[in-house]
Design a protein around this nucleic acid. Structure first.
Length: 507
RNA sequence: GGGCAAGUGGCGAAGUGGUUAACGCAGCGGACUGCAAAUCCGCCACUCGCCGGUUCAACUCCGGCCUUGCCCUCCA
């Protein structure tokens, strides 16, 4: 089986072959740190994190670089508004970035380089481009001359003429060509600046990615990713600078771009003001649900955000989580159990599972088709549910042996998508108060079934309630048992009676 | 104006030149259950924006049209 990826550069799906057969080097454009990240930023993070996880799953070593743009106009402006130093503001939002990204189970990059830590290297690239006469100086600014780079437009698939005809930019008459872009920008009074041969200033906004990607991954690395709004001009300009400077091509071999999150079918963006901050979404939705939502559509397609869509994602994701909990309930923490003889059913089951695992890989191999991969997971889940819930299911060594293997498969595939639930079997202390409220509301006769002194610990309290309810059921006191179930449900604890006893989960 | 995508059941969303158009949610019927929940089984698009064309055969290829989104300016 071969992995295929859609390359923006060729506008085709191509067989993925990293330069080094076992080692993938990838770079993803990270955020400008002047604000909390929003769901659109999160999509790019989660998509490329998932791609990275899958590459690792497939046996590649992956070096993953993601930058922070920690100096730029927006940071300077925002800092001025808040009366803060630009560097301090950027630092703060980098810390906030990690809180959100960690919560979303986005693995930390191998390197998280910052623009301000690479000023020297950027100046060096400007020097080379000037020496090659591909760039020119204009009143302390340095511009890249797009006419001097023949490949300009190859990523966005447009010629210079096409770009000009639709230009909405007001033209700076001093530039040699309207599309020339800035490499080094003179500082205005009061702005942060670095000394340079062209006067105090700061780097142009495309330079950092050209420089830092090559520095950490080497020129000609494998994957460059980002949102599709970066194709032009950001990535186009990265290519122009890097390739003109190096005098070689390609700068990056595969260009991957994710589609947008829209709101009411309109792009979610900071400038439109219709964005949803990850920090607030996380207060309402578990991170797995947000990830499920982001991965339920192919990464290149648009994804429309609305509350119903997240509700759908939660209900869908719960199905996978239920299966995972079921299988963990049966296998406990047990590791390999001797096989024994396989029944026909067990053999068929194992075969089905392996088929579903193969389907998952096939889906991911086809340009990371996560929606198809999720379908494979749902089918795998159905096999598991069916096997365990068979009337004649018995926890024989053979069955356990298979289920332990299946647990391994199921969890590793969920892990590829970052969808393993966090350890949340802990009950927050608030639940204890709410349960006390439930107990206080009982009829006096029912209340007497419980001890006068109640435990403080929420889990112990819940156990007590479950025992009481079990007793009530044995005595066919369904009025009490149903009441307890309903009231626990009200406070967010869902009870399910199974043949193996009662099971609870948080909703 | 130029460039690029996309239009699939009540909703979300895959997919293919030719047997029954995945998967999930919702809904309906059945099994299980004291009742639920979870789970399982079954049903749920004669049809894939519209009109032409190519083909023995198109939802899938081509052309036109309509609609929507994105890029051409900072934005994941």
């Amino acid at each position: 089986m071969e992995l295929k990826v859609y390359n923006t550069l060729t506008r085709k799906k191509e067989r993925f072959a990293p330069k080094n057969a076992h080692h993938v080097r990838m770079y993803v454009c990270g955020p400008t740190t002047y604000n909390y990240i929003h769901l659109g930023n999160a999509r790019a993070l989660v998509v490329f994190d998932t791609i990275r996880r899958y590459l690792i799953f497939r046996g590649f070593r992956v070096t993953y670089v993601q930058n922070f743009t920690d100096i730029d106009d927006k940071i300077i402006n925002r800092a001025a508004e808040e009366g803060d130093e630009p560097a301090a503001l950027a630092d703060r939002y980098i810390r906030e970035y990690f809180r959100d990204a960690d919560a979303l189970r986005v693995l930390r990059a191998s390197v998280h380089p910052r623009a301000t830590e690479h000023i020297m290297e950027m100046q060096e690239m400007v020097r080379v481009l000037l020496a090659k006469q591909i760039a020119y100086v204009l009143d302390g600014d340095v511009y890249f001359s797009v006419r001097k780079f023949p490949g300009y437009g190859k990523l966005s698939g447009r010629t210079l003429e096409e770009m000009l005809s639709g230009a909405r930019v007001e033209v700076d008459a001093r530039k040699q060509d309207p599309l020339d872009f800035v490499l080094w920008k003179t500082a205005k009074p009061g702005e942060p600046s670095w000394d340079s041969p062209w006067g105090p200033g700061r780097p142009g906004w495309h330079l950092e990615c050209s420089v830092m990607s090559s520095k950490y991954l080497g020129f000609g690395f494998d994957i460059h990713g980002g949102g599709s709004d970066l194709i032009f001009p950001h990535h186009e300009n990265e290519i122009a600078q890097a390739e003109a400077c190096e005098g070689a091509s390609p700068f990056a071999r595969y260009w991957l771009h994710n589609g947008f999150v829209t709101v009411n079918d309109e792009k979610m963006s900071k400038s439109l003001g219709n964005f949803f901050i990850v920090r607030s979404l996380l207060q309402e939705w578990p991170p797995e649900v947000l990830r499920f939502f982001l991965l339920s559509t192919h990464y290149r397609s648009p994804l429309d955000y609305n509350t119903e869509a997240l509700g759908l994602a939660r209900r869908s994701y719960n199905r996978l989580r239920n299966t995972l909990e079921l299988i963990e309930e049966i296998t406990g923490g047990q590791e390999a159990v001797p096989a024994g003889r396989l029944s026909k059913e067990a053999g068929d089951f194992r075969h089905q599972v392996l088929t579903r695992v193969a389907e998952f890989e096939e889906a991911m191999d086809d340009d990371f088709n996560t929606s198809l991969a999720l379908a494979a997971l749902f089918n795998l889940g159905r096999e598991v549910n069916g096997f365990i819930n068979r009337e004649d299911f018995a926890q024989t060594p053979a069955a356990l042996h298979i289920l332990i293997h299946v647990r391994h498969y199921f969890t590793s595939l969920l892990e590829v998508l970052g969808l393993l639930p966090g350890e949340s079997r802990e009950l927050a202390p608030e639940y204890a108060d709410q349960m006390r409220g439930v107990i206080a509301g009982l009829e006096a006769g029912d209340r007497n079934l419980l001890p006068d002194v109640l435990p403080d610990e929420p889990c112990a309290l819940l156990d007590l309630l479950l025992q009481t309810r079990q007793l009530a059921r044995q005595q066919k006191n369904y009025q009490l048992s149903d009441r307890l179930r309903d009231e626990l449900r009200e406070i967010g604890i869902l009870l399910e009676d199974t043949s193996r006893g009662v099971r609870w989960r948080l909703v």
